[in-house]
């Protein structure tokens, strides 16, 4: 078990009149190599939850274990933990600060105690992994386009060689092409390097397409946790908490209602296509 949350609760402003329960009694296990999608509407507690994974927030109650060890134990090295559990915040390009791209990406590895040459090698590796063109390595990160800045920022976390990579809406504010490119890169990292990926997203299509496990957060609790097919089967309940199923799931339900025997649990366009073609062929054969 890589990451484990045991009965975790978090309260903002504990002991004041402004007390807010952001997480209540969360139990969660994350195994190595999973691709996890986290969905939930704004203010549901997603961001609070992911900040518990790398010890940026301390639970007011409960325990967080990384590889079996309590990360809030007295002797635990939380700085080392943060390089194993990489967290890419929303709009990560706001954290860029160095004079050129390469030095900025090398900031993380340098903090891990690597030499300048080693850190730069790691930075180059990470930049290649996010598909950042080499001719811009010496440019100022502030001169780049939004999508390129985002790649640099993601590379900055990736360069620390984390075994878990958490991304908080990595595609917010990007155009469709930039979005697909970044998500494809993440999925490639997952399959090539076997990194555990935790992807927070507002797009049901994205999580349905990439994640093999979906965690729904609502009101500081986890009402649903399972494969996208299982979770999206509850699409009516999801709508009540401000979420939805992928559009294609709705189309499949409508088709089924019209009498076509298709798989209503299909969550991606590819799955749906197969199921519809099979159903049409079946219908044709019967005629």
């Amino acid at each position: 078990m890589q990451l484990e949350l045991k009965n975790v609760s978090y309260t903002y402003g504990k002991g004041t009149v402004f007390e807010v329960n952001a997480l209540s009694n969360i139990d969660l296990m994350i195994e190595e190599g999973q691709f996890i999608g986290i969905i939930g509407h704004t203010g549901s507690g997603k961001s609070t939850l992911i900040q518990h994974f790398n010890a940026l927030m301390q639970p007011t109650e409960g325990k967080v274990l990384f590889e079996g060890e309590d990360i809030w134990g007295e002797k635990y090295d939380r700085r080392a933990l943060r390089s194993k559990v990489g967290l890419v915040f929303q709009y990560p390009e706001h954290q860029l600060f160095e004079a050129d791209v390469l030095t900025d990406v090398a900031f993380g590895p340098k903090n891990q105690g690597l030499t300048k040459a080693e850190a730069e090698a790691r930075a180059r590796e990470a930049l290649v992994q996010v598909g950042f063109p080499e001719k811009f390595y010496g440019h100022s990160p502030f001169e780049l386009s939004g999508g390129q800045k985002r790649r640099v920022a993601i590379a900055g976390v990736l360069a620390m060689n984390p075994s878990v990579l958490i991304l908080d809406e990595p595609t917010a504010g990007l155009d469709p092409k930039g979005r697909d490119e970044i998500l494809d890169q993440i999925s490639y990292l997952h399959s090539k390097r076997g990194i555990t990926i935790i992807l927070v997203s507002h797009s049901m299509e994205d999580v349905a397409r990439y994640a093999d496990r979906l965690i729904v957060v609502n009101d500081g609790k986890i009402p649903y946790d399972g494969t996208p097919r299982e979770v999206f089967a509850h699409y009516e309940e999801l709508e009540k908490i401000g979420l939805a199923a992928p559009q294609i799931t709705y189309i499949m339900h409508d088709l089924a209602a019209k009498g076509l025997s298709v798989d209503v649990h299909a969550t991606t366009v590819e799955e749906a296509k197969k199921s519809i073609l099979a159903a049409l062929v079946g219908k044709g054969a019967r005629r």
């Binding site: 900040q51 790398n54 940026l56 700085r79 943060r82 390089s83 990489g86 967290l87 915040f89 990560p92 706001h94 954290q95 600060f97 900031f107 993380g108 903090n111 891990q112 900055g156 976390v157 620390m160």
Partner: peptide
């Protein structure tokens, strides 16, 4: 920003005065 840099291994708490000031750059 502080949290984002801490996640990248930045250290805002330890070290002597000069070290702390240079650590503030990020």
């Amino acid at each position: 920003i502080m949290k984002a840099q801490i996640a990248r291994g930045a250290d805002f708490e330890s070290g002597n005065l000069i070290k702390r000031v240079t650590n503030m750059i990020p």
